[in-house]
Design a protein around this nucleic acid. Structure first.
Length: 597
RNA sequence: CCCCUCAUAGCUCAAUGGACAGAGCAAGACCCUUCUAAGGUCGAGAUGGGGGUUCGAUUCCCUCUGAGGGGACCA
């Protein structure tokens, strides 16, 4: 919350010292609380320019911050938030905030409630303040399009689809929280060649009754069966291509089959999204863009961007050391690259976003470099306007890619079922007297939460090796741990019969355990902002885990309800603030909290 | 052959170029007549090899090894 202010203090001090530019100095957090709240490496970087010892410069900066030049027109003042400054070898400058500043923040949190963390409140954060000095949200006036989930029609959603959906939703939530106008778009794969296979399978060996009874399962069987048969008889793939072509050219029967599968698939997706608590604003699938493709190709030609090659049409990119993007096959059919270009053009025209984020697995990195560069040459977007937010794959227990074709995947339906039943078993054991309805609710929230958190707490770049026990561990650094911590706080608040303590003497919160928590709470907004900037929800997860950890330490040793009147009130306020922060953070990750569990 | 990720404790994962590399699981010893033990406490345990840049490298660069993915007519 005070990072920007600390930054400004240092910048001014450097100016007073006659060092105008210290490139890339940062304000960050010391490794532990004993070393202060904020730290900077400015002295060590300035040492290079000034050619003096870092410690010497650190001392100089320290004394300038403490007594800045007052003759300046801007009327530089001593900081009102810094208690003391310490210099530590080899040249760190550590800032300690005044306890009353940290304590004062508590009232803000209780007032802000579910908005806490979304806004900069301190007046020195001018980058997000209006002329009147009123705090505004960072993302105000900016639009961001987020493309995530993107399942394929006629394929079941399996663990491989989880990451895009969960990470995408978290990033969506974070940006929305920060005040951006967020557009979530589910780019459903409803036009691909794979669909021809299904049409063929449907016509030749579908069991219509099973399809009606259990659409998802039977559809999956059709897909797997097709691939099994195609292995023996390669001609099947040719037949599938014929079906695809007929369908794309408007063949009535094939369109009818396509519509049927699309409708049923979307129903199935929606069941999954409902379980996950995911809502995506738009679902403009690939089919939506088909009528624009001809224009994309012809204008690419007109601009001299596209050219013919071996009967196909490509956009050569060798100038940029990138393989060419093919936009039309030699048989005249278009490809997903073509659709992607149309999609970018459409999104820019319709929403004029500052950025378009593609939450798509690492395996498509090459494709997106081609598409983005092509879109740039075509003038659809500026460089870096479209960003591929890539992530590692979910690998099978054998350490290899899950194969849909062989039907070896773990379906999301099954994953959820297992998670919920494991959670159910534990609730039953821990809290048998709860009502059945409540147990059901808890099982679902805990089970689904565990799955989401398992993913979101990891750095998105690393591959995940699927493991039931790891994914569904309800102890340690997991969603249930955070939810449990929240439920513990709620339990105390229920007993105290206050929803939030309004009046309290914040200065009573002097215990080291309390101060650690207070000092952590002021960092929440910075954590959310950074998670957004880096597209890394795990930064929030890590923060929440530490916060919960600190609360549980406090919980073991510091009584709340049994404390003397004023102290009790102050501690109630403190734990309420922790509850608010946990809830807000988890909500950003798309994870629900529970009053009891 | 080219491109993208990754390599940290027995296992699964953290760590904006910074100060003694953090967790969880597993294994060991403790804490429920005190606000929910899905918790807490105490020990043990790690940066693939070799160079380089830097005051400082798990992080950046080069190289080697290993893993996963991609490489115009699938998405």
């Amino acid at each position: 919350m005070y990072k920007k202010e600390i930054y400004n203090l240092i910048e001014k001090a450097l100016k007073d010292l006659g060092i105008e530019e210290v490139p890339n100095f940062t304000v960050s957090y010391p490794p532990n609380e004993k070393m202060g709240d904020y730290t900077t490496n400015a002295a060590m970087i300035a040492a290079k320019i000034w050619k003096k010892a870092p410690m010497e410069i650190a001392d100089a900066i320290k004394s300038k911050v403490k007594s800045p030049r007052t003759t300046s027109l801007r009327g530089r003042q001593k900081s009102k938030v810094v208690e003391k400054i310490e210099v530590a070898p080899p040249g760190f400058i550590n800032f300690y905030l005044k306890p009353e500043v940290v304590q004062k923040n508590l009232a803000t949190i209780l007032k802000q409630k579910d908005k806490f963390g979304s806004t900069w409140f301190d007046k020195t954060h001018h980058k997000s303040l209006t002329a009147s000095g009123k705090a505004i949200k960072i993302g105000k006036g900016k639009t961001i399009v987020i493309d995530y989930s993107a399942p394929n029609i006629a394929k079941m959603m399996h663990v491989g689809h989880l990451r895009s959906t969960i990470i995408g939703q978290a990033i969506y939530n974070i940006y929305k929280f920060l005040g951006y106008k967020t557009i979530g778009d589910n780019h459903i794969g409803d036009w691909g060649t794979h669909f021809g296979k299904l049409i063929y399978a449907y016509k030749n060996f579908a069991n219509k009754k099973d399809l009606k009874k259990n659409f998802a399962k039977e559809m999956n069987r059709l897909y797997v069966d097709f691939n099994v048969r195609a292995k023996e008889d390669e001609k099947l793939n040719d037949y599938a291509r014929v079906e695809t072509k007929k369908f794309q050219e408007g063949d009535k029967e094939n369109i009818k089959i396509w519509k049927y599968f699309a409708r049923e698939s979307i129903k199935e997706f929606n069941r999954i999204y409902k379980m996950l608590g995911v809502k995506i604003d738009y679902a403009l699938g690939e089919s939506f863009y088909q009528k624009m493709l001809g224009e994309i190709i012809s204008s690419a030609f007109k601009k001299g961007v596209a050219s013919r090659s071996q009967g196909a049409i490509i956009i050569p990119l060798e100038k940029y050391n990138i393989p060419p993007l093919m936009i039309q096959k030699s048989d005249g059919a278009t490809l997903y690259g073509t659709t992607d270009l149309a999609t970018i053009k459409y999104r820019m025209k319709k929403w004029n976003p500052k950025k378009i984020l593609y939450i798509v697995a690492n395996e498509q990195a090459g494709h997106f470099t081609q598409v983005f560069k092509s879109a740039e040459i075509l003038g659809f977007i500026a460089p870096k306007q479209a960003i591929h937010v890539k992530f590692g794959m979910v690998l099978g227990p054998d350490g290899k890619k899950f194969s849909t074709r062989e039907g070896k995947v773990i379906l999301l339906k099954d994953l959820f079922g297992e998670a919920i039943s494991r959670a159910r078993k534990i609730v039953q054991e821990k809290n048998p007297k709860l009502s059945d309805a409540e147990k059901r609710k808890i099982s679902k929230v805990v089970g689904i939460g565990a799955i989401k958190y398992n993913d979101l707490s990891q750095n998105r770049f690393t591959d995940i090796t699927f493991n039931w026990d790891k994914m569904l561990d309800f102890r340690g650094n997991s969603a249930p741990y955070l939810q449990y911590t929240y439920a513990r706080i709620k339990s105390i608040l229920r007993r105290a019969k206050v929803s939030a303590a309004i009046k309290f003497k914040q200065e009573l919160l002097n215990d080291e355990k309390e101060l650690v928590i207070l000092r952590q709470l002021i960092l929440f907004d910075e954590v959310v902002e950074r998670a957004g900037e880096e597209f890394m929800p795990n930064i929030i997860a890590e923060y929440l885990y530490k916060l919960a950890n600190n609360f549980n330490l406090f919980y073991e040793l510091v009584p709340v309800l049994k404390a003397e009147k004023d102290l009790r009130q102050a501690r109630l306020a403190l734990i309420s603030a922790v509850a608010i922060t946990l809830k807000n953070g988890l909500k950003l990750l798309g994870i629900e909290t529970l009053e009891r569990m």
